[in-house]
Amino acid sequence: MYEFSYHKPSSVADAAQAIGAADDPKILAGGQTLLPTMKQRLASPSDVISLRGCRDLVGISSDGSTVTIGAMTTHAAVASSADVQKAIPALAALAGNIGDAQVRNRGTIGGSLANNDPAADYPAATLALGATIVTTKRELSADAFFTGMFETALEEDEIITAIRFPVPHAAAYAKFDNPASRYALVGVFYAKTSDGPRIAITGAGQGGVFRSTEIEDQIAAGKTPDSSSINESDLNADIHASAAYRKHLIGVMAKRAVAAAG
């Protein structure tokens, strides 16, 4: 890891200010992706701004139609939250299957979304559920938030403070693990919403998480979903899975997610 300056502001306002004052800042949430990346010297921020002091970013609330999760809430907290389990059980289950137990004890929802790893789980739930990302500057729809692999609409000094998930009629997440890393090789989140079915796919796309309106239309039409409409050239290929295999898995996982949601 390269040297850096460390800051621990006690409010998001102070955090935003610290970001503005730094050359090449990085926000540290749970650190479960950032720190391994910095250890490999693949990231070299001049300043690391920890959100650990911003206690108001932690917490979960539910009013029956919306579940709001603070950005610094850990995956473990989401997984074990009675509110989330009751309102959106698929989201609790997804959180309970991110990484391993120790990652879930540190990793946060805000960190995961801001990083937008193309194989992360939360982006699929956020996009499929049509969540709203609340930041220090504005509110962003999930459709507008994810802009590409490791890319989001966030501005440099903009910090996610919370995510609001509308409660769907039903939802389920089907994930096929990368055998080695256990990240999603393909993950499909299906949500039955009042606006119709929404499908978000993670792990597979070259541009990160994406929706498939074709699969959504199949489901809306009462058909069994398949992945024939997915363009193979838009998918990732690596030593674990070719684009063709990923495309196939999208169909299988979509089918399983729809079946599980009931």
Partner: peptide
């Protein structure tokens, strides 16, 4: 390991298990 996967470094911080290789001492 150096990718925070092997778990040889697991300790408890405030009662929960964490990988001490994926946490800054200052944190």
């Amino acid at each position: 390991c150096d990718t925070s996967q092997c778990g040889a470094c697991v300790v408890h911080v405030d009662g929960a298990s964490v990988k001490s290789c994926a946490m800054l001492a200052v944190e």
